[in-house]
Amino acid sequence: MQKITIVICNYNHGRFLADAIDSSLSQDYPETGVLVIDDGSTDGSREIVESYAGRIRALYKENGGQVSAYNDAVNMIDTEFVILLDSDDLLYKGAVSEVMQAFEAGDSVKVQFRLDVVDSAGKPSGKYVPHSVAPVDCGRLLRRGWLYPSPPASGNAYRTSALKKIFPVPEASSNRYGADFYAIYGVALLGAIAMIPKSLGAYRVHRTENTGIDFANSDSIDKAPRALTKRWSILRQLARSRLGIELPPSFHDFSLEKAYFCSAVYRASFAKRWRWVSRQSHGYLRSIVANPFWSYKKKIGMLALSSLCLLPYSPLSDFAVRYISNPLARRRL
C-alpha cells in the first residue's frame, strides 16, 4: 500500500485548524501521514499543533506567505502522493481512499475532486466547486493558454515527483500568495488529470453574507486580474526553464474575464454598460463562446444571462451581474 501525506498550510487560522487536522487524522486510508506547516502564526495556532504531538509532523517557520509555505512543504514531503489542504478547509473521511484508487487506476499526475462550499461556521451553502469537468489532457489546452476548471487548493492531490519539477517557486513580495496556482496548472503540463465527480471535502468561505460582486475568498475584483497575470508570467518562466515548454504570453480564463465584466457593468449607467460591451467585451465573449470546457447549453445560458446585464432596468441588470459573479448570493437573490 502506497503512502500519502496531507500537508496543512496554516497562517492564523487557529479557530479552524483543529477541524482540518482532525479530518486528516480520521481518514480511513491507513497509510496517511499529516504534516502541518505553520507560517509564523500569531494567534495561538502553534499551541494547537503541539497538542497533536506524536500524531503529526510540524514545521514552524517565519511568516513568508503561501508560496514560501508550499516551497517548504514540497521540500519536506517524503511520500509519492500528497494533498495540500488549506487550514480552514477539511476532508471527508473517505477522501484519501478514493483519491488513491484514482491514482492506482492510471498514470495521472493529479487527481482533483469537488468541494462543498460551507460558511465560516461550517454550514453548507448548497453549492460546490468546480462546476465544470476538466478533460484528462488539460495540458494540451493549457499550452494554448486555457486555464482548466479546478477546485481550490484543498480539492487537489498530486504526485510529489511532479510537484518537485515545478517547485520551488520564486518568492518575492509581489508573489507571496497563490501558490496553488503553480501546483494546479504547472503539474498539468506533466501528465494526465483525473477527476472524481463527487464532493470529498469542504471549502470554507468567509464572506457568504456579501451579496455584491466579489466571490468567496478570492482576491478583490480589482486585485484578481493583476495577481493572475503575474502568476501566469511566472508559470511561463518556470515552464520554459524547467520543462522546456513555451506557454503563450496571455491566457484565457472565464473567472478573470468575469471579474473585468462584472466590475465594469455593476451599478454602472445604461450608457456605460453598452459602451464597455461595444469596446472591451471581446475577451469576455471569447471566454464563453470558445470555452473548450463548457457545453453548448452552458454557453448559450451564460450569453443569455449576460445579456440581462445590459437592460435599461438597473435592478434586474445588477441582479444578473451578482448572479454571474457571486454564486453564494444566488440562494438569497
Rank of each mutant, 00 (worst) to 15 (best):
A172W: 05
L90P: 06
S325V: 07
L228I: 13
N175F: 11
A202E: 11
L141H: 06
K230I: 02
A102N: 07
L303K: 04
D214C: 14
S108K: 05
Y148R: 01
M302N: 10
D72H: 12
I77Q: 01
M195I: 01
V187M: 02
Y70S: 06
L189F: 09
E104R: 14
W232T: 00
A95M: 04
R114C: 10
T32H: 00
F254L: 12
V82T: 04
F167D: 09
L238T: 05
K299S: 07
D214G: 11
F167N: 04
A264F: 00
A172P: 06
F319S: 10
A227E: 09
M302F: 15
Y148N: 07
T208N: 08
K230L: 12
L141S: 02
G155A: 06
N71F: 10
Y177S: 14
I184W: 06
K272G: 00
I234W: 00
R267Y: 08
Y296W: 13
G301D: 13
H252R: 14
I234H: 00
V99T: 06
F251D: 09
V277L: 14
H282T: 13
P30T: 02
W294P: 06
D22R: 09
S218E: 13
L305T: 15
V277H: 01
N175P: 07
A121P: 07
Y203G: 04
T42L: 13
V109A: 08
I21V: 08
Y70R: 15
D88H: 13
T42G: 12
Q2P: 15
E246I: 08
I166P: 03
